[in-house]
């Protein structure tokens, strides 16, 4: 037996072992990647039967309902009230001003008209009519809430994102607080309601707002409560998932 065939045999064995090692490594890597991919989003009937998952999915529906209510219900109420003896606005006129409700749609996208008083420092109390402006702040909050609802879906069906479950709960709360602050965003977007600004030289800051009372309409409170309900549902669902043993590998 010459040496050449032996060397060739050895080299072939080494190459074969090397090839097998690479194949095995690739197979293992593929197996790991496949396993992780499988865990990222797991859907099964068994999963959907878990109370925690049901609660979390319910929170998504409730969140979407809150978003719809935020756009549909009256969010801002304009009234007048005499706050103190230093109030210059006519108490009689303040009492006669009926509550004016601004719909959520108008508070969000503007386009419709609303009215409030301009109290001149020279005396006239003028009922002013103006067009509502686009409210990017409120819309941003609702978009944020919508993103949270989508994120809640991924958190529900992904073990990898489970650690972000508190972010979803917090996001729902932020959405609720944001809607509760609707009057602030509305006044900012429409540039009215600042404290007494009576510079004669600047006619855009000429009026007193010492009796203006802009506050939450019932829609803002309802929307906030529905967002909070969504947060509670998701938090309880998360708690149930943790307590019940989180196994999204498909065994349960």
């Amino acid at each position: 037996m010459s040496i050449s065939p032996l060397i060739c045999l050895i080299l072939n064995v080494i190459l074969l072992i090397s090839f097998m090692e690479q194949m095995l490594t690739a197979a293992v890597n593929d197996a790991v990647a496949g396993e992780e991919k499988e865990k990222f989003l797991v859907f099964s009937k068994e999963t959907l039967k878990r109370p925690g998952v049901i609660l979390r999915l319910s929170s998504i529906v409730v969140c979407l309902l809150a978003i719809i209510l935020s756009a549909a219900l009256p969010m801002v109420a304009i009234e007048y009230a005499s706050y103190s003896s230093s109030t210059t606005f006519s108490a009689d006129r303040a009492a006669r001003f009926p509550q004016e409700l601004i719909s959520g749609w108008n508070a969000l996208f503007g386009g419709d008209y609303f009215s409030y008083y301009l109290k001149s420092k020279y005396g006239p109390e003028l009922l002013y009519t103006t067009k509502a402006q686009f409210n990017g702040i409120s819309l941003g909050i609702l978009i944020f809430a919508f993103v949270m609802a989508i994120f809640a879906f991924f958190v529900t069906f992904s073990k990898r994102l489970e650690k972000y479950s508190k972010v979803v709960t917090l996001g729902y709360f932020i959405g609720g607080l944001g809607m509760l602050c609707s009057p602030i965003w509305f006044m900012v977007s429409n540039s009215f309601g600042n404290s007494s600004a009576v510079s004669t030289a600047d006619l855009t800051h000429y009026f007193l707002y010492d009796s203006l009372y802009v506050h939450d309409a019932y829609g803002a409170i309802v929307s906030c409560l529905v967002f909070v309900l969504a947060a509670i549902l998701f938090a309880v669902g998360t708690s149930r998932e943790m307590a019940g043993g989180d196994d999204r590998g498909g065994e349960n």
């Binding site: 719909s103 067009k131 829609g219």
Partner: peptide
Amino acid sequence: APLVLISCGVNTAKSV
């Protein structure tokens, strides 16, 4: 219900 309730938010202000 929301569509019905939205009418509550309409004010009397408008363009002439």
